[in-house]
Every structure is written in structure tokens, then in C-alpha cells.
Design a protein around this nucleic acid. Structure first.
Lengths: 187, 187, 187, 187
DNA sequence: TATGAATGAGCGTTCATTCAT
DNA sequence: CATGAATGAACGCTCATTCAT
């Protein structure tokens, strides 16, 4: 292949393509097992082209995580402004975002070394919402952490595998966490 | 340039030391960020010594995960044999193992790419136990997955940080999952 | 994504600008540490524009050295034609050129791998002039090389740092090289 | 070639060989045109072996310069301790070192970006020695710089080309700088 | 005249692994 | 049992240069 500009080439398109392929590969294989050479091969460009649009492998990965974190914050803030959004709706919106961005979600929730930040943020949000409720005070933090754990696990096993819709999963989660009388008859 | 066996050296000791240091480093820094050179430096031996006891970096990592998985299986089987162990006790025993082996747990639960196997196993066990109970059938699988998610998250945030004992955490988990009425007064 | 000729742009101007910036950067950072991207950035044009005016990085560098060498030759030839120019005046004219073109001088005298050519030329010229004088024959070559060495060093440390004018430096050089009695009282 | 240790291999030997080849190549081709691949090819080892003994290309280059600078300092200090060493002898010793280490000298004097430090040091030393003499005060610094320039140039053209011995060159230098009456009959 | 977009070719460096002793 | 010395195989990244517009 000759050097120089390709016919019909377009920078924004190449950058977007690289981004998408990177998301795909990072989410599937993880950061360390994804080589720049894999990404550019998938995008059908050469390695220097990668560096035309991204500073480094690491900075691209950071970018993706940044975006994921910002997206989540936006979702959480939306609810904040339109008051009285029920908790279940908040969770459903989150799950909806996960479904719409499954690969970015895998990266942001399960692969980034900074995923703990996002998780802490989510827990804080949950606590904030739950405070308005008559939950026994001492347990709010733990309850929120537990709920987050469930969300993370069920997202992985039911949502990202397309076994449940966001709406269904949110309902299920709330039937587990807030309406348990009818679920279990203890021994 | 003296070569050969060190005075007072002992094969089993070296192997054990390498194993321990590997667990330490893998759990702290992850698989890809832990180099053989780091491990042997920590164990104060040279690189060829590593290969005297382990086939490769990967196989050592697999070994550690194998052990973790076997340990968990043993714990779960014990309960099986002495019937009527209450569910809460099963969970408490699990948590107890996690506390006793925090670094191996980090590897086995959060870093291994095959941690999904162990998690599936745990879920199966939970389902098995819950089946004996009058939980509404359709939800048993999801309920178990949710519970596992909570356990994973709370282990990370409360147990391995020494904020809760296994017993306390097991109680908290069960008050969340099985004793709902007194926890929340819905709006 | 507007492309094509800039309004008010002008080929000669761009070329001249690129030349100047190249001289600046080459003289300051050296050949290998000066990137085409640095040069065009400084000249506020894009990389292909560079290749509109220069064949390659190397050929531009060669051009600069060629010019420097030609300039020196011209200076030396001028003196030749107007006979009886005293040696000191020849040197002063050289130094004058160095002061007027400090950055090109740095490149031509100290950075080019072919600076040895220019230096040989200078030495030849010195010898030519000195031959008309009653200097002991065997030493003319060495004397000329020595003088050149002094000129090179003092140009660097006194002239290009503006501590001495060409006239002053030429005087100093000649008091060192040709008026010994009053300089040193040997022990 | 198989992996692992070579027959009869010896670390210190390999390191020394790499060092020597590096000196050779750096002095001949310069820093930027000498690739690690060139050095290891010359030493008949592979690239990782280079990093067994040196931190990086740059640090090796620095090391070489450090050694050169230290060597020079040692020479200059020796003279200091055995008082009354005549100036000419000091210079001769320097030149002797240059002859004995021609390639390191090329690197240390003409290629290092820090060669200016060594040169400043030499100038200072010259000044120190000359102060004890009745040279007209205002000119000592310039005189020393001039002398250094001559030394640098003549080293390059007569010494490292084996046209003059250190002793001869030192004599010539001193006849130029300190005994000029009989050399030139001015017009 | 000038630019946006792309690439060939290579470089320094790292790491798991393996011989020879 | 243990080590000193070495290497195969990549990998991330850079830079001069060039095509299509």
C-alpha cells in the first residue's frame, strides 16, 4: 500500500473507528491483552495513524473510562433535577445505559483500575436517595453497597447477556430488596 | 561468582516462599503488572530457581486459582455432609475463609479470568440450598446471583478491609436478604 | 477542513520563513533533535509545505551549510583581490561575518559533519597568507591550525556571546599570536 | 542460536566488549547514528544483553563521558600534588591521555553535549597555572581559551591522526604560545 | 500554493524463559 | 538445589515522507 492519504479518507471517521475497535477489544480481551497492533488491524489502518488521534494506549483507555464516568454522572444528575424520580427508575435508567453501551460498561465497571471510583460514586448516590426513606440508619451504607454488588453481578449475568431488559431487571432487583415478604418463607 | 546450592537452602522452603510472594504481588498489582523478576526479588532467589518449581508464570497463577477453587469446594462440601447447616452458617464459613486468605481471595475472586467458574459454582450451591426452601421458584437463580453479587461487593469493602468480621457480615447479609419487614418502610 | 492556498500567502515568504526557523532550531538543538514537525510548527505551516520548498530534512541542512561555506569563500576571495589586506583585517572580516550570522555560524562551524571542509579551507587560506611572511617554514601549517583552533574557540566563547566585537577579538588574537614579547615574562 | 547462557560466557567480558564497541561506534558515527542494534551486532550479542549491563543507550553514553571527565580531572590533580610541574608537562600529559584513548577523547571532547563542562574545567586549570606567571593580567582568561582552542584543534589534526607525538605537539604548542620571537618576522 | 490524512521503516526497551555451570 | 548469563519475540512509539484534495 502506498504512503500518504487514502482515497476518501476522513480523519473523524478514522478516529471514531479506532475508538470503536478499541472499545471492542479492550472489553473483550482486557487492557494488557489488547495491543495497539490489534486495534489498528481491526480498524484497517497502520500504527502511526493511531498516534495521529490518541496520545498513547493508556491515554485512550483513560479517555474511555472518563467518558463512561461522565455518562454515569449525567444520568445520576438528571434524576436529581427532576425531583421525585423513584429509586427504581434511577436504577432502571442506569441499566438502560449499560444495555445501550455494553462494551464501554464492561471496561468502565470491570476492567478499569479506577472503576472503584465510579462504584463509590454510585454508592454515594444510592445513600443519598435512601436517606429520604425510613431505612434503619446504621445500615444505609451497607445496604447501598449490597445493592450495588447485586446490580454489578446481575448486569453481568442477565443484562449484558440479553436475558433481561433494564425494566425487568430493575423490577426484579426491587422485589428482592424492597418487597421480600412474599418471596421467602423462612424455615 | 559462586554458583550452586546455598548453604541452609531448602527446596520446599524456596518454593513456599515464591508462592507466598507471588500471592502477595499478584493480589496487589495484578497478573500483568507482576513480573517474574519481582517475585524472585521478593523471595530473594534468582529467576531460574523460579522455573525449578513452577512451569511458567501462567501455570503458577493457575495453580493459585486452582487452590482457591478447591478450598471453596471443600468448604461447600463440608456443609453438605453435615446436613442441616443453616444457609447463614454456610455463608459465614465462606467469609471466614476469605478473611483468613485475603490475598488469595483477591486473586481468585477478582483477578482471575476464570473467576467466573468459581462464581458459577457458588451460585449453584446457593440455588441448591435455597431449593429446599419455599422461595418462589422463578426467582431462585436470580436471587442467588444477587446474593453472590452482594457477597462479592461486601467482602471487598467490609471484610477485606477489616471493617466487619465474617459473623457480623453474614448477619448483615441475611438481615438484608431475609428479614425485610423491619428494614424499610416504603413510601 | 478548508484546504488549498491561504489568502495572502506567498511562496517565497513561506520558504524564507522555513529557512529561518530551521536555522534557529538546528543551531539551538542540533540536527537530530530538530524535527520537521518542529520547524513547520515554528513557521506556522504544515508538513507537506516543507516538502514544497525543500527536498528533505538533510538537503535543507546541506543547503544551509553550502551557503555558509560559500559566504566564507566570498569573504576570503574579496581579500585576495584587493591585495595587501593585512592578515588581521582578513580575520576581522571573518569574525564580522560570524557575528552577523551567529546561528548559521554555529551550524556551519560546529554542527555540520562537513565543517571539516570549511576548516581545511580556512587553514589553506591562512597558510597562503603566511607564506608571504618570513615565518619559519616547517611550522606554517601547524601555526595555521593552531590559529584556527583559537579562532573557533574564541568565536564560541567571546564573539557569539557578545563579549567581544570582531575588531577587539581580532586584535586580541593577534596580540597572542604575533606580539609575544610584551605578553609573557617567563619565569 | 539457542536461548540461555553461551558456552564459556562471562559477564564482565561481555560488558567490557559492549563498552568498547560502543566507544568505537559512538566516536566514529556519533550518538544519534549509533543504534543499539549496531553496538550489539559488533559485540556479537543480542539486544537484551545490552540491557543486562547498561540501563539505556543514553546512560551508557553518559557513563563514557563521566569516565572521560574523571580521567582528565585525575590527570590535572596529579600535577597539582607534585608541585612545580611545568605547564608544558601538564599539557603533554593531557595529550598523552588523548593518544592513549583516542576514541573516548573524540566522544568526550567533540560529541558530548556536556563537553563544554570539560572544556571550562580545562580553561580554569590553565588560568590557575598561568596566574603564577607574569602574564598580563587582563588576558589570562582569553589566553587560556585560545590555548585550549589550539589544543583541541591540533589534537584532532595532528595527535589523533598520529602525525605528532604528545611530546612533540606539546613542544610545538609552547613554541607557538611562549617563544614566538624567533618564529615570525613581522612586515 | 497549501493542507488533511496516512504510512514505511525502524528504534529503544521489556519480559518470560532457557542454557551451561 | 541454585545461579550467572543469555536470548526470542514482541511491543509501544516516533519520524521523515507522501498521497489525494
Amino acid at each position: 500500500m502506498a504512503r500518504g492519504r487514502k482515497v476518501n479518507s476522513n480523519g473523524e471517521k478514522s478516529k471514531q473507528l479506532l475508538r470503536e475497535k478499541a472499545i471492542e477489544l479492550f472489553s473483550t480481551n482486557g487492557y494488557y491483552q489488547t495491543k495497539i497492533s490489534d486495534i489498528v488491524k481491526a480498524a484497517q489502518v497502520t500504527q502511526p495513524t493511531f498516534y495521529l488521534y490518541f496520545e498513547s494506549k493508556e491515554s485512550l483507555f483513560q479517555d474511555l473510562n472518563q467518558q463512561f464516568q461522565q455518562d454515569l454522572l449525567n444520568i445520576l444528575d438528571e434524576q436529581f433535577h427532576q425531583q421525585d424520580t423513584p429509586f427504581q427508575k434511577v436504577v432502571e435508567n442506569l441499566l438502560h445505559y449499560f444495555t445501550a453501551n455494553p462494551m464501554l460498561t464492561k471496561i468502565g465497571l470491570y476492567q478499569s483500575e479506577e472503576s472503584y471510583l465510579v462504584k463509590e460514586k454510585l454508592v454515594s448516590k444510592f445513600e443519598e436517595i435512601l436517606e429520604g426513606q425510613n431505612l434503619q440508619r446504621i445500615n444505609i451504607h451497607m445496604f447501598s453497597q449490597s445493592l450495588l454488588g447485586s446490580i454489578l453481578r446481575l448486569t453481568n449475568t442477565f443484562l449484558l447477556t440479553n436475558k433481561k431488559s433494564p425494566k425487568e431487571l430493575a423490577e426484579d432487583l426491587f422485589s428482592i430488596y424492597f418487597a421480600k415478604e412474599d418471596m421467602l418463607v423462612t424455615t
